[in-house]
């Protein structure tokens, strides 16, 4: 016998005939075919014809979605930049101002018979090297010189008005360029804090203290308790150093001592200083 015959004989011993196998397979496949035809209906010819079109539409939809996401992302990005670059909204201004006003007054009380503690006048050469963020100004005989004569604060007596209530003068507030946002200025008689300096006209803010109709040659003056400046938008700047210059009209009641104290509050700083008209 050959090896092939031996092997065939050996394995035939364990492989009994299975004449029913083909019939079983026919039945199995018939059942499977039946289940397949019931669970998956035939594609209709019109669906086959539409297959290409549907694939094209699906591809276009994908492109459209991707394009929408891309364009939408750009629009959203631009919108975010636009929102972030908008000026401080009104609500934010009020909130910031309220926060500044909430800062307590830390102005020292100076007895009438003592020397006004720190009154400075500056020469033009000194002005550029001042360390404080806010620099005063002067009135009634004091001159604060900035870098150039054209930007010096009020000339003594310039713009001053007398009334039966007191007197008015212009003060130039000069603000260094690195200061931004709102700046709140409040002033008092250094010897009597119950006597506030008042402000009229542009930049005056806060509570209305009174109305002075006795100003010679002028309309009635509405007196307010504080000054608010927007350091982000200077109305004018100094010729040297780009400092902001704000002309503010201040009112000094009769009976006020010659020593005055100011507290200036802004974003990240609070400054107290004295002035003395002489």
């Amino acid at each position: 016998m050959t090896l092939r015959a031996d092997i065939t004989s050996a394995y035939d011993e364990i492989a009994p005939p299975a004449p029913e196998l083909q019939g079983q397979l026919r039945m199995l496949i018939a059942a499977e075919a039946n289940a397949t035809s019931q669970s998956r209906p035939r594609r209709r010819p019109w669906m086959v014809g539409l297959r290409g079109t549907m694939a094209l539409v699906a591809a276009l939809l994908v492109v459209l979605i991707v394009a929408t996401l891309f364009v939408g992302g750009r629009v959203w990005h631009d919108w975010s930049i636009f929102n972030n670059s908008r000026p401080v909204p009104g609500g934010q201004v009020h909130l910031t101002l309220a926060q500044l006003e909430a800062r307590p007054l830390q102005m020292p009380l100076v007895p009438p018979d003592t020397t006004c503690p720190a009154v400075h006048t500056f020469s033009a050469s000194e002005a550029d090297s001042l360390p404080e963020p806010i620099h005063s100004l002067t009135y009634a005989g004091y001159v604060f010189s900035s870098a150039g004569p054209a930007h010096a604060s009020v000339i003594p007596g310039g713009g001053g008005d007398l009334s039966t209530w007191g007197q008015y003068a212009n003060i130039a507030w000069v603000i260094e360029p690195q200061v931004t946002g709102l700046v709140l200025i409040r002033g008092r008689d250094a010897a009597n804090h119950d006597l506030p300096l008042v402000y009229v006209g542009q930049y005056s803010a806060g509570a209305v203290i009174g109305t002075d109709s006795g100003v010679h040659g002028g309309p009635p003056a509405v007196q307010r308790s504080e000054v608010v400046l927007d350091a982000s938008h200077h109305p004018a700047t100094s010729a040297k150093g780009n400092w902001g210059v704000y002309n503010v009209r201040v009112g000094l009641p009769n009976g006020m001592s010659p020593c005055h104290v100011f507290q200036v509050d802004g974003d990240g700083f609070s400054e107290v200083f004295f002035t003395h008209p002489g």
Binding site: Y11, D12, I14, A15, P16, A18, L21, Q22, L25
Partner: peptide, 16 residues
């Protein structure tokens, strides 16, 4: 091919 497949399976599994 069913019978041939069956014989192959028997040879591999030793179990009809």
């Amino acid at each position: 091919l069913a019978q041939r497949g069956y014989r192959l399976a028997c040879a591999m599994l030793h179990d009809p």
